[in-house]
Computed example of a mutant assay.
Amino acid sequence: MKPTLKLAALALALSLPFAAQAHKAWLQPSQTVLAGNNPWVTVDAAVSNDLFYFNHVPLKTDNLAITAPDGSTVAAQNAATGKYRTVFDVELKQTGTYRIGVVNNYVTGSWEDANGQTKRWRGTEATFATEVPKDAKKLQVGQSVSRVETFVTSGSPNETALKPSGVGLELVPVTHPNDLFAGEEAKFRFQIDGKPAANLDVEIVRGNTRYRNAQDELKVKTDAKGEFVVTWPEAGMYWLEANSEDNKTTVKQAKQRRLGYVATLEVLPQ
């Protein structure tokens, strides 16, 4: 593989949770439900072959966003990136539910230079106009919006941090994401740009796939309201993923927008 292609492939693997990838991106908190005064959680972030096992590359957390129970943004602490994972701590100073996520919204481009060599670029919508040549030959442009999330509650849960932004593919919990129990039914809703994402395929996989021969994935589809229901077969950490594509780009040169969503959810024993 040429160096430029290697870089492009690595960037995609680090940033996007699309189903076309063999690897899975995820965030895993040390705990999802806590009590006590000013507790902390440690979060692992990785892209791996097995859930939740570090064996590929760390997840990039440049666009990490942590929303506190009152809707404010808090900073991660003690962040470090190693060979196979990124790790950071979150101090839970407030009582309630935190949303922890990596949110990527960027533009990609490829074109031919004067020598016929393929050039590749990735950046923001703001930098596209200045960094991509206006006279680029055979220009191909795409836009990607993705989220990799998890949820943590200290004390009593609340829903302020769960409110969707209205941009891209988002999970809107009907059942609280930190109130999940084995054998019980949970309901969620997917939205795209604030509207119901109907007929969307959703895949759910229990962790520890390294230690079993089958993925044992659960596959469901959203209804006309964008909602779906899942009954958790057993306790443990679960990986949830959905993807979509449309032409609702905000860059006129881009003809396609790719949307991806991943969540790590903990299901507790009854």
Rank of each mutant, 00 (worst) to 15 (best):
M1Q: 15
K6I: 15
A11M: 04
L12Y: 13
L12P: 00
P17N: 09
F18A: 00
A22V: 13
H23I: 01
W26F: 12
P29S: 09
Q31S: 14
L34C: 11
A35D: 15
A35Y: 13
N38S: 13
S48M: 07
F54E: 08
P58R: 00
L59F: 01
A65L: 15
I66P: 01
D70E: 06
T73L: 09
A79S: 14
Y84K: 05
K93G: 15
E112K: 13
E112T: 09
N115K: 13
W121D: 02
G123A: 10
G123E: 07
F128M: 01
T130L: 11
T130Q: 14
P133T: 14
K134M: 12
K137Q: 14
K137P: 09
E149Y: 00
E159F: 04
H176R: 09
P177E: 02
A182I: 05
G183Q: 11
F190G: 00
G207M: 11
R210H: 09
Y211W: 15
E217T: 10
A224T: 11
K225A: 12
E227W: 00
W232S: 00
W232L: 00
A235D: 02
M237E: 13
Y238C: 03
E241Q: 14
S244G: 14
E245K: 13
T249R: 00
T249E: 00
T250C: 00
R257L: 10
R258A: 03
T264W: 04
L265N: 00
P269V: 08
